[in-house]
Design a protein around this nucleic acid. Structure first.
Length: 828
DNA sequence: TTCAGACACGGG
DNA sequence: CCGTGTCTGAAT
């Protein structure tokens, strides 16, 4: 009878497919008492026993071990860094989205806390030339680069300058020769920040005596008196307030009267901001009904999902606020997801205004350190509310009561990098796991969500009226084809011009919406028809007038404005298409006395410029605001009475099953910016497709009509919610190779399906087809779309997993990258 | 015989 | 992905 062996099952922090599995290590006896599931440890890995960070996901015992196991070196954390639920979440993410363990872990933990072994290489001998043989060119190259980098560099830096495949081999020989030295260090990128505090180290009664004994050291006396009153104070503050030097302080420390202690402190992204208080509003009847319904579930601690379908301006935020209050009463915590923090400052301000402190904010503009601290505030229970963009869905609350997803139809909730998770799906997992209530809010719910409401999978709550007295704006559709017949070749209709004019006279504000930035959207030669495209991508370059250049909006490539056609040298170059910059020019020419501002990615690249533009719009210093979809969300300005949607159908003809849905949502959202005050609002919707159902329905604020028509089409063409999709994207430098691989995979899938008796694979497999943008950054892209049409979804997924994950090396050459998207938002 | 460099292989 | 072992061809 052998002794029991304690085994830790770990995931190593090595971002490669080949190591994406669970490894077993024995637990040394010295660690048995401290080790816990969810902790991180260091393990020896591979033949060289490189030290790697590993996450312990399970501890088990075994009577005997089949093969030789290595031993854990040491434990990193004092407490588990991953909770039980988070470990489950990691397994779920991997399974659902076919990602790697480590990618799932990176979702639930903040970036930068991961320990990595880093190699630094330092040059020992300056005069190395005689030690190196004539033909050892690579060795010489390395040493030269190392010298150029100042004799010391990390392996990464060296490799970036000099990508040699067996760099480590060569470095080792150089180390053997004694020319260089390789050092290993294990470090995290973010650290817990500490601040020095100073404190009395003596009894209060003796202070007076000491002060007397100090004679003429007046500064030191001041410090002692100050501390007698304040007890403890940050060193920085003391020096600041009393205008003393560090020297005086040190003198007291040396005498033993004071001690300096380090205290942990957390970075605060809102340190210098104050928030106006936002008092509780009396809910109207429809708000009250929705609140009561949801609260009844909260009271009974019953988990459920609600769709809060409320027209723009129906007061969804107030409902969120009151529900969060209920959750806090239950001593639970809540997560609020917003599409993008920068675009919804008003929502955040309201939460701060209502609840004050006790809120963590997570968004993309935080530094790694700030994010780490916000994460710890949540983790340690210092806050009970977290507001953030998509990734905030992973906020590590221990007693989660509610998840609110505002504007649930927004595509920012779908991750574009692996794991390509959707926040709604993650929320649903947490709901089931942690017994929370999920609230999805939108004026224009996604077809899938509304369908779930209709079939009773989730509870549908409708807010049909605006919360304030203001009515929904009247939408006037302007048929741009007729405008053309009347001889107006421009992009702006007469009707829009005249209404802007009236609005200016009445000192009201106008918003103009166009979902294209830049000036002209494509440049082509009149002589030969040549269209200027990006060198790296299969996409037209956009003319930016203010920069006087052409830009690729995919890879950022910039190019001088051409004087003649690159193909036929003709000087007849024309600029077609319209972006926000051109609109700004046109409006400026037409209304020289109006104050015009533009808000798009180009005008808001500087941090804070967002807020600046919106603030001055709020103060009515701006008459006309022109913008891209940045201005479609959450803006609530009562003085805006006119909204112009310049090209209502820009997104209508995209080759995507969601094109109509996106168009409807965008038009409705933008239209909702009008008439939020006392005065009635008006929307001008310019379009070439005035009869299209998504344009008509949006104009009539008729979600149900749109939903019905769209659902019919989804059913007919077998798209979600009637099927589930899996999109596989292949990319590589050589177009033919990428296609060949994609075709091979497609055939393999067909073959397996056939073997299982499914002969309708024409309906199941679409492609391989070139992606909508066939080339991005020098890489050609093809895709295969799978539908679970009369075939079990689980089988499709199992096939994908078998071919592309478990046996990837067998089927996919190194030069081709693949990416699997489960339930893609877009299939373009 | 030694060594640089290419390549295959396995990670507990 | 990364380090190690192994193989090859060329220089010593």
């Amino acid at each position: 009878m052998g002794e029991k062996v304690y085994i830790a099952q770990v995931i190593v922090n090595n971002n490669s497919l080949q190591t994406d599995k669970i490894f077993d290590y024995t637990i040394p006896e010295s660690l048995l008492m401290t080790i816990q599931e969810g902790m991180r440890c260091m393990v020896p890995f591979g033949m060289g026993n490189k030290k790697l960070e590993a996450y312990i996901i399970k501890i088990k015992t075994e009577e005997e071990v089949k093969y030789r196991l290595k031993e854990i070196l040491y434990i990193i954390d004092e407490e588990p860094i991953l909770s039980r639920n988070q470990i489950k979440m990691i397994g779920w993410l991997k399974n659902k989205y076919l990602c790697r363990y480590i990618e799932a872990i990176q979702c639930v933990l903040p970036a930068g806390i991961i320990n990595k072994e880093r190699k630094t290489i330092s040059l020992l001998k300056e005069e190395w030339i005689e030690d190196i043989k004539e033909n050892s060119t690579k060795q010489k190259d390395i040493l030269q680069v190392l010298k150029a980098l100042g004799g010391k560099a990390t392996l990464e830096k060296l490799y970036n300058k000099l990508p040699i495949s067996n760099m480590n081999n060569i470095l080792k020989t150089l180390e053997k020769k004694g020319i260089i030295k390789i050092d290993y260090e294990i470090a995290t990128r973010v650290k817990i920040q500490t601040q020095q505090y100073v404190q009395l180290n003596i009894e209060e009664e003796v202070i007076e005596d000491i002060i007397v004994s100090l004679k003429n050291a007046s500064r030191q006396k001041e410090i002692l008196l100050f501390l007698k009153e304040h007890k403890i104070c940050p060193v920085k503050e003391l020096i600041d307030v009393l205008k003393v030097t560090r020297g005086s302080l040190n003198a007291l420390v040396n005498k033993g009267y004071l001690i300096i202690i380090d205290k942990e402190y957390k970075r605060d992204p809102f340190k210098n901001t104050t928030f106006e208080s936002f008092p509780k509003l009396e809910p109207n009847l429809q708000q009250q009904r929705a609140i009561e319904k949801i609260v009844s579930y909260i009271q009974k601690e019953k988990s459920n999902t609600f769709l809060l379908h409320g027209v723009t301006g129906s007061g969804k935020t107030e409902i969120y606020l009151q529900l969060i209050e209920e959750i806090l009463k239950k001593e639970k915590q809540g997560i609020i997801l917003v599409p993008e923090i920068a675009l919804t400052p008003q929502t955040i301000e309201r939460f701060y205004g209502r609840f004050g402190e006790g809120i963590a904010v997570l968004h993309s503009n935080l530094s790694e350190g700030e994010r780490f601290d916000e994460w710890r505030k949540i983790r340690e229970g210092k806050v009970n509310i977290a507001i953030g963009a998509r990734s905030a869905i992973f906020a590590p609350f221990r007693n989660l009561g509610m998840i609110i997803i505002d504007e649930e139809h927004e595509n920012t909730y779908k991750s574009e990098i692996s794991p390509k998770y959707h926040a709604i799906e993650v929320a649903d997992f947490r709901r089931r796991q942690e017994g929370a209530v999920v609230i999805l809010g939108s004026a224009t719910p996604s077809i899938e969500t509304y369908y779930k409401g209709e079939v009773g999978e989730i509870t549908l709550l409708t807010l049909a009226e605006r919360a304030t007295v203001s009515a929904l704006p009247e939408v006037e559709v302007v048929d741009m084809r007729q405008e053309l017949d009347k001889g107006n070749k421009g992009i702006l209709s007469h009707r829009l011009f005249s209404l802007i004019d009236k609005n200016l006279e009445r000192k009201k504000q106008t918003i103009l919406f166009l979902n294209r930035r830049g000036y002209a959207t494509f440049i082509s030669c009149r002589q030969c028809g040549y269209v200027i495209k990006c060198r790296h991508c299969d996409i037209t370059m956009i003319y930016h007038k203010n920069m006087k250049n052409l830009q690729c909006h995919y890879c950022g490539e910039k190019k001088e404005e051409p004087k003649h056609c690159p193909s036929c040298s003709s000087t007849h170059i024309n600029y077609f298409g319209t972006g926000t910059q051109k609109i700004q020019d046109l409006i400026g020419e037409h209304f020289p006395n109006a104050v015009i501002a533009r808000m798009d990615m180009d005008s808001t690249s500087i941090k804070g410029s967002h807020k600046k533009i919106l603030n001055s719009f709020k103060k009515q210093e701006i008459d006309i605001l022109i913008g891209t979809q940045m201005i479609s969300k959450g803006l609530d300005f009562p003085n805006v009475t006119l909204v112009g949607i310049i090209s209502g159908d820009a997104s209508l003809n995209l080759p995507d099953f969601r094109a109509s849905e996106k168009t409807f949502q965008l038009v409705t959202q933008v239209a909702g910016r009008a008439g939020r005050g006392l005065e009635e609002g008006r929307v001008i919707l310019q379009t070439y497709n005035p009869d299209h159902y998504s344009i008509c329905a949006a104009a009539q604020h008729d979600y149900n009509r749109f939903y019905k028509e769209e659902l019919e089409l989804r059913k007919e063409f077998a798209y979600p919610p009637f099927v589930q999709l899996i999109n596989i994207n292949f990319s590589g430098k050589k177009s033919e190779d990428v296609y060949t691989v994609a075709e091979k995979i497609s055939n393999n899938i067909k073959y397996i399906l056939k073997g299982k008796g499914y002969n309708n694979y024409e309906e199941i497999i679409l492609g391989p087809n070139p992606a909508m943008i066939a080339k991005v950054k020098e890489r050609y892209r093809f895709q295969i779309l799978l539908k679970d049409y009369n075939v079990p979804y689980s089988l499709l997924k199992a096939i994908v997993k078998y071919l592309l994950i478990d046996n990837r090396q067998k089927f996919i050459p190194q030069a081709i990258s693949i990416s699997v998207d489960i339930n893609p938002s877009y299939i373009m």
